[in-house]
Structures are given as structure tokens and as C-alpha cells.
Design a protein around this nucleic acid. Structure first.
Lengths: 146, 146
DNA sequence: CCTTGACCTTACCATGATGGGAAGGTTTAG
DNA sequence: CTAAACCTTCCCATCATGGTAAGGTCAAGG
């Protein structure tokens, strides 16, 4: 199986397969005489595992940890659980932060909607500054983005 | 006020202040004869706004939109609200995805904990593949990360 | 046998937002 | 006058991914 087929089968782009190999996340693929990479079903399993773990938000480093734990059968279960739990905690922190941002923004937007203020409270703290310096900004920055 | 003071006052690192200027998110600062950047309280307000918006998860591009809307007073309120609402929706999508990942991972971890399976279900789909190819991986990748 | 198109290879560049550091100029306090 | 603390620009690194270019290979059809 060439890299294209392996990519389709695993759902990992060919680009990423080569990248994962280059950083040592997956072992180097066998090569044909002409240098084409060859993959078997084991390789596809592994790539699929990597993809799923990425979809679950594991960093490549964590996935590497999981896969090397796998090698060492004796320690694996408890340690795998440890890595997974650590990741769950990270995700939960992230989720809490997100919820906080959403709540704050919702408040601001509702304030803005009710119209009980002359200026949009989302912007209030900028008042006076942008207008004052607007002229200076015209075309003078090196790489404008808008 | 030099960049160091402006950094402290706004909570934006000096590095980032220069970066924001280079991409045109904030107008170029006045310079002293020797080339030092000078900041006033308006600049500090603006930088503080940028920092808060970043803390709320706005991308720099969105912050740019918000700030350029600000210039055009007539349109601002409705459009600012639109940008903010769009961002809220993005955050909510992200949060939902996060919750899904957390739930999936929690299931796997609980499975693993109960011990009602010989192998850790987190890893089951890798079974057979890593062990088979482990030998090939030894020291052959260009830049190993673990 | 040759061409064509689909595939593969490596190598380089880009993203977004940030940090790090080097090499050199400036300012301020002692 | 000197030392420390500050500033400047420039380059490099991160993380995971995509793009592109220049060139090699393979299979099918004329």
C-alpha cells in the first residue's frame, strides 16, 4: 500500500504521515526500490489511532507517551489511565475557561442589545483613543492586515 | 512613556506591542529622537482593550474588525454586536466539541478503571501493530521526540 | 515504445500568537 | 565615567498543518 492509500484508509493526510515519521511518532515506513513508502494494515491501525487521539485533543507528545507505554505491557494500564486522566483535567480547565469567556461575552452582547447605554459597552473602554490616533495609523504600518 | 511602562500598564508584553504594531493592529507609536517608542494613555487603553479581547478568545483579526468598526460610529453598535455574537457561536461550538471529547475520554478511562477487560480499551485498537513494528523503529527516525 | 496523467519524493515557505536571544544603541543613577 | 537597565532590530523556535515547486515513478492506453 502506498502513502495515498494509507492516507485514505487512516484519515491522516499524506503530508502528516510523513511528518509523523520525521518526528519519530511512527516508525519509518518500508521503502520500495524506487523510494516509495509501503504500508501494511498495522501501520494503518497505528495511524488511525493517532488520528483518533488527535481528535480527542491529545497533543502529539501525549500520543507518543501513550504509544510508548503500550510497548511496556507491565506498566501500561495504570500509566495509560494516568495520561488520559491528566488530559481530561486539561480539557476540563480549557472548557471552564471557555464557558467563562462565553458568559462574559453574552453579558456584553445583552447590554449592547438592550440599548440602555449611549455606547456599546463592548467598546466602551476604547473610547477616545482610537479616534484620536486614527490619522497617524493611515498606511504607515509595514504590513497592514485590514 | 516607554514601551516597558506601556507593557506593564496594559498587561501586553513589549514583544507583543511591537508585533501588534508591525501587523497594523495598532498604529505606529511616536518615536523619540533616538528611536524609542512613546506611548500615552490612549495607547495604553487600546492595548488593554486588545489584551482583554484576546483573553475573551477573539482572534487578532476579529479584534481588528472590532477596532475598525469603532472608527465608523454610525454602523458600530449593530456590527460590533454581530462580530461578538459570531464569536460567541464559535466559542460555543468549540465548547461543545470539548465536552464531547471529555465524555468520550471519561468513558474510556472508566472502562479502564473497572478492569473488566484484559487490555486497556484506550489502546485496544492499536493491538498487534506497535509490538510488531517496534524493532524497525529503533533509532532510525531522523529526529526522535521520545 | 511512448506519452499522459496520477502518483510519489524531498525541500522550502506559510500560518498565528508568542517567547527567546543576540548584537548593539540610549538613558539614568551613582 | 561607568554600570545597569532599558531600548532597538533581526533572526529563530514553537505546534500541527497546508501549500507549492521541481523532479522521479508507475500504470494504462495509443
Amino acid at each position: 500500500m502506498n502513502i495515498g492509500q494509507a492516507s485514505q484508509a487512516s484519515g491522516v493526510s499524506a503530508k502528516m504521515i510523513r511528518y509523523y515519521e520525521s518526528i519519530g511518532l511512527v516508525p519509518p515506513a518500508d521503502r520500495s526500490n524506487s523510494g516509495y513508502r509501503h504500508y501494511g494494515s498495522n501501520d494503518v491501525y497505528r495511524l488511525t489511532f493517532v488520528r483518533r487521539a488527535r481528535e480527542l485533543g491529545f497533543s502529539i507528545k501525549s500520543i507518543g507517551e501513550l504509544m510508548s507505554l503500550w510497548v511496556d505491557r507491565g506498566r501500561s494500564r495504570a500509566e495509560v489511565r494516568k495520561v488520559a486522566l491528566r488530559h481530561v483535567r486539561e480539557l476540563e480547565t480549557q472548557a471552564a475557561r471557555l464557558q467563562e469567556m462565553i458568559a462574559t461575552l453574552r453579558d456584553l452582547v445583552n447590554c449592547c442589545k438592550r440599548g440602555d447605554r449611549p455606547d456599546c459597552p463592548i467598546m466602551t473602554e476604547l473610547e477616545g483613543s482610537l479616534l484620536a490616533n486614527q490619522a497617524a495609523a493611515k498606511g504607515s504600518a509595514r504590513n497592514r492586515i485590514f
